[in-house]
Amino acid sequence: MKNITIADVARHAEVSKSTVSQYLNKRYEYMSETTRKKIEKTIKELNYRPNVVARSLKQKSTFTVGVIVANILHTFSTQIIRAIENNFHQKGFHIIVCNADDEPEKERNYIEMLMAKQVDGFIIFPTGGNVDLYKEMINQNIPLVFMDRTIDEMDIPTVMLDNMDASRLAVQSLVDKGYKRISIITTSIIRNISPRVERIQGYKKALEDFQMPVVPDYIKSPDVKNLNLAIGELFQLNAPPDAIIAGNDRVLIGVLNYIKEHDLKIPDDIAVIGIDEVSFAGFFTPTISTISQPTVEMANQAVKLLLNQINQEVDLGETGVYRLKATLNSRESY
């Protein structure tokens, strides 16, 4: 069978090839609705498929972006990916999603693979273990945006939550309910993962602002595999906490599992609030209070920053860190 070309589409639709090209690139502003529908109908009738390789060579773009998440198991990660994909789809781009599992070597392999595929740019939730590679990407003028995590001394546009404010929201909501022994649990901070470190810093600062003591025993940051043990240590203290701030969704699940296994009652035995909204928070019994991140706004900001680099439309101000505010979802768990 003969391959259908853009010239065939133009001839059958009785328009110029440039008009068909504008349609394929979603530049509809210079054509009438009648012309647009005529081209759309012709493409369907002829079963035309654009030659992606030829298009890439001609426009020097693959119209593909690499998205590397540190850990896809986090609800936040999947919400961000969904919003990023939707935004790029509307702009005629595809995304390739890779999961680094918080392993720097795996992240490096994915970056190098995507560079070999000549993606137009990257949105990376950095593990923090490949600073040399990030610098190499900058030196090669590869469009790059960081999401959720920042790397010190690297002037890469970064979109993330105002983590200290998120912790303050959590502490304040508990203090307002009368809780005095407040604990915070995050996952490991061994590689100085910025959201986890900042949430602990925000927790400490909020307690100090409320003239409450910062008790080191109430601060836990274990590996996920040791999470249950760390929670148990809190309840074995002479003065165990009366409230727990779960620093992310995986910690929240671990806390709730521990509470269930030990027949504890929320909020009678322990109050709980999680940083990161989770799908079950609203129908868990009792419903779980959370601090939610503005995932759609964060994704949109990251896409904007990356496209500006790809299109070489970067403003001088589009560097550094963009921090967005969290929202408190007050429910029944405190």
Rank of each mutant, 00 (worst) to 15 (best):
R250C: 03
A246N: 03
P241T: 05
E313C: 14
G274K: 04
A239T: 14
A271F: 02
N257I: 10
T295P: 11
T319W: 11
N257L: 09
S292H: 03
N308D: 09
G317V: 04
L237G: 13
I253Q: 04
I245S: 04
I291N: 00
A271N: 02
V251K: 05
D315L: 15
M298D: 07
E313A: 15
D242H: 11
V303E: 05
H262I: 02
E318I: 01
Q236D: 15
L237Y: 13
E313W: 10
L264D: 10
E297T: 11
I288P: 07
S279A: 09
N308M: 05
D269G: 08
I275H: 10
A239I: 13
L252R: 02
I266W: 03
V255S: 01
V255K: 07
I310H: 12
F284C: 05
N311H: 15
N308G: 01
R250P: 01
N308R: 10
K265I: 13
G317E: 12
P294Q: 03
E318P: 07
S279M: 06
S279Q: 07
I259M: 02
V272P: 07
L234H: 11
F283M: 01
Y258C: 08
D249N: 08
I259V: 14
G317R: 11
N238Y: 12
F283L: 03
T295Q: 07
Q293M: 05
L252G: 06
N248F: 01
L316S: 14
P267S: 00
F280V: 06
N308I: 02
L237E: 12
L264W: 10
K265M: 09
L307K: 14
A302M: 04
F280N: 05
G317P: 00
Q236A: 15
G254T: 06
L234G: 13
G247R: 01
Y258V: 10
L234W: 11
G317Q: 11
F235K: 13
F235H: 14
Q236F: 14
L252W: 05
P240S: 08
R250K: 08
I259H: 00
T295I: 12
I253V: 08
L316T: 13
F280Q: 06
K304F: 10
T319V: 14
P294M: 08
N300K: 15
N238F: 11
S292P: 00
I310S: 12
K265E: 09
Q309G: 11
F283N: 03
D263C: 12
E297P: 04
D242W: 12
Q309P: 13
E297G: 13
A299P: 08
N300I: 10
G274L: 04
L256Q: 04
G247C: 03
A302G: 08
A246Y: 00
P294G: 05
E318Q: 15
A239C: 10
L264Q: 14
Q301G: 08
G320M: 09
V303S: 13
E318M: 08
N257E: 13
L234V: 12
K260G: 06
V314S: 00
T295N: 10
G274W: 06
Q309E: 12
F284I: 03
V251R: 06
G247D: 01
P286N: 06
K304Y: 10
I259G: 00
I245P: 10
T285M: 06
M298C: 05
I253P: 06
D249L: 01
V314F: 03
V272R: 03
I273M: 02
V296T: 15
D276C: 05
V303M: 05
Y258Q: 09
N311G: 02
R250I: 02
I270T: 14
